[in-house]
């Protein structure tokens, strides 16, 4: 197996690649153990173990290309859509390994929802956008029930007041920030337990970003949230724990306040003080 760090100038020894900090938590929602991800011959995630706690926001930070997206896409098997991608190790939710045999990804993806970097509402009405998930999963018995799911989801996503009079308008007609909240509502509508967010605010302006951040904070009461972000401020504002990735390795994980004030690992310190990345 080719080792991408081999010719890297900032070569890290095997010793130094061991994760610093406590990867475990008391109340895990998901448990990842020895996860390795390969794109063909190339390894993108190397031996990562990490717990994701209930009712917490965990932020994934690290330089571009370090494998943050790759890692969170493992959590709902979104990587399956990439043909060359291969995942090893265990990711357990409700005592089941999601990479085990005979696992149906459909309920898994309902259980572990995802919000993408660029808002991507369906080219359908706002109502349809939110109702689609519940419909295909058979979550409602009647139109009234469906209406209610749509309303509560939009309310939770903080979008209801703005769109309640135009539910039949196309979702693509909303502003970028509204679209992203619509996508969050769409994710919430299928009652997930974990929400994965891959740089959800990178396409938004500061005001829209602030709204989403507030929303994430509120959602924490019901869901576990994994958020990938390039903004250290954002990570420190919304998350309770932070994980720092570097070239496919999970370098350090710990309480967000600790990571940003007293990083234990040299690489983490270099990154958060802006020395590289």
């Amino acid at each position: 197996m080719a080792d991408p760090t081999h010719s890297d100038p900032k070569l890290i020894s095997r010793e130094k690649r061991k994760t610093v900090g406590d990867i475990t938590v008391d109340n895990p929602r998901m448990t990842c153990r020895n996860v390795n991800v390969y794109y063909g011959e190339k390894q993108a995630i190397r031996n990562v173990s990490l717990d994701i706690a209930r009712n917490e926001v965990i932020a994934m930070i690290g330089p571009s290309g370090c494998g943050k997206s790759t890692f969170i896409r493992c959590l709902n098997r979104m990587n399956d859509t990439i043909e060359s991608c291969r995942v090893e190790g265990e990711i357990i939710i409700d005592d089941v390994n999601i990479y085990g045999r005979d696992i149906d990804v459909v309920p898994l993806r309902a259980q572990v929802g995802m919000v993408f970097q660029k808002p991507n509402p369906f080219p359908k009405s706002i109502y349809e956008n939110v109702a689609y998930g519940p419909k295909i999963h058979g979550l409602s018995q009647s139109r009234a029930e469906l209406d209610e799911i749509v309303e509560t989801s939009l309310k939770k996503a903080g979008l209801w007041e703005e769109v309640k009079d135009q539910l039949e308008h196309p979702g693509t007609g909303l502003s970028g920030g509204q679209q992203q909240r619509l996508c969050i509502a769409r994710t919430i509508a299928v009652s997930p337990e974990v929400i994965l967010m891959d740089e959800p605010c990178s396409a938004l302006d500061p005001i829209a970003t602030a709204r989403i951040e507030d929303l994430i904070d509120e959602l924490r009461e019901q869901y576990s949230i994994v958020i990938v972000t390039h903004s250290m401020q954002q990570a420190s504002r919304v998350s309770q724990r932070t994980a720092y990735f570097h070239l496919g390795d999970l370098i350090e994980v710990g309480k967000t306040t600790d990571i940003f004030t007293r990083p234990k690992h040299q690489l983490t310190e270099d990154y958060i003080t802006g020395r590289f990345g």
């Binding site: 459909v106 369906f122 689609y132 998930g133 999963h137 769409r186 509508a189």
Partner: peptide
């Protein structure tokens, strides 16, 4: 068809069939 639409559908738990035929 932009890949983001496929991702969106898969992301809410649509099967491959549903993704293709609904979106």
């Amino acid at each position: 068809v932009p890949p983001s639409i496929r991702e969106a559908a898969l992301g809410v738990g649509a099967s491959k069939m549903q993704t293709v035929f609904h979106h």
